[in-house]
């Protein structure tokens, strides 16, 4: 117990005696972990947005103007049996004209005698069917139904957007991993410098009969503490940053509940591994 206290005291005194270096390490670790957090949370939010977009991807299937109420009922049933269609919304000719009026200048409608807009089905795809090949298969089956005049796949732009977001997410995750490695290297380097600066105390410890654990302990605990504090600071900064960006961009950017604890755990792990690796190589 006294030995443990000694090791703990030595590690705290090591941090206290090299305040500037320790503060710099904690700061740099927290910045690089903040990037890890940004990339992780950014990746998560991109994923969420992509899912939302995928939920909105669909077709507009225009119904032949000669279709009767019974035809429409039959079509609705047939559509609901096609795998990959998540939800169906029927827009009658009257509803279509109302929507048109809210969106555009309706003077054009005064010159036509009859409602020119057809009735349609808004078909929303199951996110699993959003991939181009599977969505095309659904489109072909819908277009083949008797009574369907034309099918408009209006989400080509969204498909492209999803591709861009997918790439963005992968890049963000990759950068996050890169900054993670950077944190590890930073802790490791700081411990190396601390060992160099405390060479005299290490020699003295060895000469007066300190066990290996007592010589290593203060450095390992120092690494753990620096990583831990760096991780906690990164978590807090990330939370604040998301609040600011949510407010500025007027969008909902959520901090996943596991993000804060993950950053602390990541800081602790990097601190421990960085210190252990250096201590094993240098002592």
């Amino acid at each position: 117990m006294r030995t443990l206290l000694f090791v703990l005291k030595e590690s705290l005194s090591g941090i206290h005696r090299a305040k500037f270096s320790a503060a710099l390490t904690i700061l740099t670790v927290s910045i690089s972990l903040l990037f890890v957090g940004i990339f992780y949370v950014g990746g998560k939010n991109v994923l969420r947005i992509v899912q939302e977009i995928r939920g909105r991807v669909g077709f507009e299937a225009f119904v032949d103007n000669t279709a009767t109420e019974a035809d429409i009922q039959r079509l609705q049933e047939q559509l609901s049996q096609i795998a990959g269609i998540d939800s169906i919304e029927y827009i009658s000719r009257e509803q279509a004209i109302e929507v048109f009026k809210t969106l555009f200048d309706d003077t054009f409608l005064n010159v036509v005698e009859e409602n020119p807009l057809p009735a349609s089905f808004q078909l929303f795809l199951n996110p699993a069917y959003v991939r181009e090949d599977s969505s095309r298969a659904v489109l072909r089956r819908v277009a083949a139904l008797p009574g369907i005049d034309e099918v408009v796949y209006r989400e080509r732009v969204l498909q492209r957007l999803i591709q861009v977001f997918d790439t963005m997410r992968n890049v963000l995750i990759g950068l996050g991993a890169l900054f993670g490695v950077l944190s590890f290297v930073l802790v490791s380097n700081n411990i190396r410098l601390t060992i160099a600066a405390r060479r005299r105390i290490i020699e003295t410890l060895e000469l007066v009969g300190a066990t290996r654990g007592m010589v290593w302990g203060p450095f390992v605990i120092q690494g753990i503490l620096e990583g831990l504090i760096g991780g906690a600071l990164a978590g807090m900064a990330l939370w604040a940053l998301l609040r600011v960006f949510s407010w500025l961009l007027e969008i909902s950017l959520r901090m996943p509940p596991e993000a804060f604890l993950s950053l602390i755990a990541l800081g602790l792990t990097y601190g421990f591994l960085g210190a252990m690796l250096t201590v094993q190589r240098r002592l």
């Binding site: 005299r200 003295t204 009969g209 300190a210």
Partner: peptide
């Protein structure tokens, strides 16, 4: 090493602690 006492030409004292703490160090370690 706990059964040996070792002194050097360059004293090898810990510059960041006082005389009492330098000597106490050898006891705290054990």
């Amino acid at each position: 090493r706990r059964q040996l006492g070792i002194v050097f030409q360059d004293f090898r004292l810990l510059e960041d602690r006082n005389v009492f703490e330098n000597v106490a160090f050898a006891l705290r370690v054990i």
